[in-house]
Simulated scan of single mutants.
Amino acid sequence: MPVAIITGASKGLGRALAAALAGRGWDLVVDARSAGPLEEAARELRAAGQGAGRGAAARAVALPGDVADAGHRAALVAAAGELGGLDLLVNNASMLGAEPLVRLADHPLDGLRAALEVNVVAPLGLIQEAMPLLRTSSYSPSYEEVAFRSDSALPGSLDSNGEAYDSHHNTENVRNAGSSELPPYIGTGGAILNISSDAAVAAYPTWGGYGAAKAALDQQSAVFAEEEPGLRVWWVDPGDMRTDLYAAAAPDDDASGRPLPATVVPGLLRLLDGGAPSGRYTAAAMPGGASSR
């Protein structure tokens, strides 16, 4: 069975993606800072794995801790190794830096340092720790091969509002860019999925600290895509979602109309299934092209 590490998996997008993978028979290592909610999520993942119908029940190892801690990152990778290896690393855990968000003139510097530590330094540290396992992954997509252009929508996938899940216009680092005749880029190793934000590429008042951290994550991801051609590296803006993170960022906003994280998962799975080339992908937030944070 393929193996994934998913950080920040006790709720939101991390939990929704973990549930989808467990239902497909993936073995999982999941993390979050709060032990109780994480174990509750892990029980649901094990139940989903039992119903996968692919031989032995999928396993879910729950390791509470802080991704900013090097010892915890090492434990996550060690757990994946005990499950047989690592095929997908999802850096989903995130930190705002200020709750609620504030203008840069008022942003606490300690908060920005913490956001950079969780959103940038920790993903780098986890990737470094996991690189030996990722490089030796033999996972390959089980779905039909689909040829991708760097500017094309991912076939068969929809974002939370029915829009095609398409690649970002900045595609300098996308493999097979500009060729519809080449097969999908499928590396010899595993895949890295870094969860980004539109705040990484657009300027929104009060989102400066968080956006700066996500912009750094984007650049870091792009360099990894260049340096590790045997891997697939995706950095994805999932669009506006109804999450605890957004509620903490903007508590006065009415989030009731925002889509739930589970609606984003099909697009993420199509990246995996189609062997999508390394690059930045985004889901449009609303019809008409309005972008999301």
Results as ranks from 00 to 15, higher is better:
residue 27 D to T: 07
residue 83 L to N: 04
residue 270 R to W: 09
residue 138 S to V: 15
residue 291 S to W: 14
residue 172 E to L: 15
residue 183 P to G: 15
residue 89 L to C: 06
residue 101 L to D: 01
residue 150 S to A: 09
residue 52 A to I: 01
residue 212 A to W: 04
residue 122 A to V: 04
residue 44 E to N: 00
residue 271 L to D: 03
residue 80 A to D: 02
residue 78 A to L: 14
residue 73 R to M: 00
residue 22 A to E: 06
residue 196 S to D: 05
residue 206 T to D: 02
residue 115 A to I: 11
residue 209 G to T: 09
residue 198 D to R: 15
residue 242 R to F: 13
residue 70 A to W: 09
residue 119 N to A: 04
residue 154 L to A: 12
residue 12 G to H: 02
residue 256 S to T: 15
residue 271 L to M: 07
residue 80 A to G: 01
residue 234 W to E: 05
residue 222 A to P: 07
residue 216 A to M: 03
residue 215 A to F: 11
residue 280 R to N: 13
residue 80 A to P: 05
residue 124 L to G: 07
residue 78 A to N: 09
residue 64 P to V: 02
residue 250 A to Q: 11
residue 48 A to I: 01
residue 133 L to W: 07
residue 183 P to H: 11
residue 275 G to S: 07
residue 74 A to T: 12
residue 114 A to Y: 08
residue 232 R to G: 10
residue 255 A to S: 13
residue 222 A to Q: 10
residue 232 R to S: 11
residue 33 R to V: 11
residue 238 P to W: 07
residue 293 R to E: 04
residue 259 P to L: 00
residue 288 G to I: 07
residue 245 L to E: 09
residue 184 P to H: 10
residue 13 L to S: 11
residue 270 R to K: 14
residue 291 S to D: 14
residue 169 H to W: 14
residue 244 D to Y: 04
residue 207 W to E: 00
residue 290 A to L: 11
residue 196 S to K: 08
residue 222 A to I: 06
residue 137 S to K: 00
residue 175 R to W: 13
residue 50 Q to S: 08
residue 269 L to I: 02
residue 92 N to P: 09
residue 52 A to D: 04
residue 261 P to Y: 02
residue 81 G to E: 13
residue 100 P to Y: 02
residue 20 A to D: 12
residue 273 D to S: 14
residue 194 N to A: 11
residue 203 A to M: 07
residue 225 A to G: 01
residue 250 A to P: 03
residue 147 A to R: 15
